[in-house]
Structures are given as structure tokens and as C-alpha cells.
């Protein structure tokens, strides 16, 4: 490909950032919206993700959140779930070692074997900061789309029946499609 010279950019072809942003490569105009990859399964980062998502939804932006890797644990149901298809030993181990849902996540800093997380939750309650569970519920009520990455589900042996209600399943194309149509895109 070395011989394929880059085309010369003529002055009239130079676009400003704003113009470029409104005309993505696919030709479909970018709309106001927020798309997010939630990769982290840490309490503080996921709280930030849901506060941003709820704020964006309140400001009438369509919001898509993609949960992958550790972030997938946010969508797990609490307690044990009987799965239709038997898990392998490895999948069972992953399932047992990873947090089951919003109430079992830990802080990314000052966790101190769970003590820091407990203290932070107490402080949040005292200062009327919404719990993560409540923020997730509110996000769903506001129409925020929660999408679980099926590759991660397959990799870690997490089945659809282990996830909370109202989750869409998707893969990278679902994220790219939403990201391509939204002006704000975050990786958390």
C-alpha cells in the first residue's frame, strides 16, 4: 500500500471539527446522544457512568450503555440462578469469584478488603447520594438502553437468565452503531 499516495487536501475540502462531527463516514448525520462502554466493574466508576447516563437522559439525549468484561457483572442478578445450559468448571469459578450485581461491587480506591466500600456506602446514604441499584432502575425508567456484550457472556459463562430484566444483547457492532450516531462517547 506504500504506493497509494495520500490524496492532496484542497483548502475547500478542509472542514472544521464541528462540520466533520456532523457528517460521519457512514453518511448518517450524527445526532445528539451518549454512548458508553462500561468496562469497569468497580463501584465508583460505575456510579459515575450511571450518573452521567441519567443526566444525559434527563437532558433528552438517547443513551446506550455497553457492558463488557468486568462491567458485565453490574448487570448480574443477586443470588444464585439456575441456568438452562450447564456451566464448565472454569465458568462456574468465574461466576463464583465475580460480584453478583450492583450491591456487590467494590471501590477502585480505598477498598481495604471491603471496609472502605462499606464506609463509602454509609457516607453516600448519609449524604443522600443515590445507590447504584436506584440509579440503574432510574436509568431504565428513563429509557437508557443497557446492552450486554455477548462475547464477554460467552467468555465468562454468564447466561442471559443471570442478568437483570430489560437487557439487550449485542456485540461490538451494536456499540459502533450507537457511537457513530452519538456525539458523546465514553469508555469507563
Amino acid at each position: 500500500m506504500a504506493s497509494a499516495a495520500l490524496p492532496t487536501v484542497l483548502p475547500h475540502e478542509i472542514t472544521t471539527g464541528a462540520e466533520a462531527a456532523s457528517v460521519p463516514a457512514t453518511g448518517e448525520p450524527k445526532v445528539e446522544g451518549l454512548s458508553m462502554v462500561v468496562f469497569s466493574g468497580e463501584l465508583d466508576k460505575v456510579l459515575a457512568a450511571f450518573i452521567i447516563a441519567n443526566g444525559a437522559a434527563a437532558m433528552d439525549l438517547p443513551v446506550h450503555m455497553f457492558f463488557t468484561f468486568w462491567g458485565l457483572n453490574v448487570l448480574r442478578r443477586n443470588g444464585s440462578v439456575r441456568v438452562a445450559r450447564k456451566k464448565t468448571t472454569m465458568e462456574s469459578m468465574f461466576g463464583a469469584m465475580m460480584p453478583k450485581g450492583v450491591d456487590h461491587l467494590h471501590l477502585s480506591e480505598l477498598n481495604m478488603a471491603g471496609l472502605g466500600t462499606r464506609l463509602m456506602k454509609r457516607e453516600m446514604a448519609k449524604k443522600h447520594v443515590d445507590t447504584l441499584a436506584h440509579l440503574v432502575k432510574t436509568a431504565q425508567e428513563q429509557g437508557v438502553q443497557l446492552i450486554a456484550c455477548t462475547m464477554t457472556m460467552d467468555l465468562m459463562g454468564i447466561r442471559k437468565e443471570e442478568l437483570i430484566e430489560g437487557i439487550t444483547l449485542g456485540n461490538v457492532a451494536s456499540f459502533i452503531d450507537a457511537a457513530d450516531r452519538s456525539r458523546i462517547s465514553l469508555f469507563i
Binding site: G55, A58, H128, D130
Partner: peptide, 13 residues
């Protein structure tokens, strides 16, 4: 009053 972000915004909406 007493609510933290994003509470007041969501209440307003």
C-alpha cells in the same frame, strides 16, 4: 433539598 446529583435534576424533569 438534601438530594445529591443527579437527584434534583431528575426531580425537576
Amino acid at each position: 433539598r438534601g438530594m445529591a446529583c443527579p437527584g434534583p435534576l431528575l426531580e425537576a424533569k
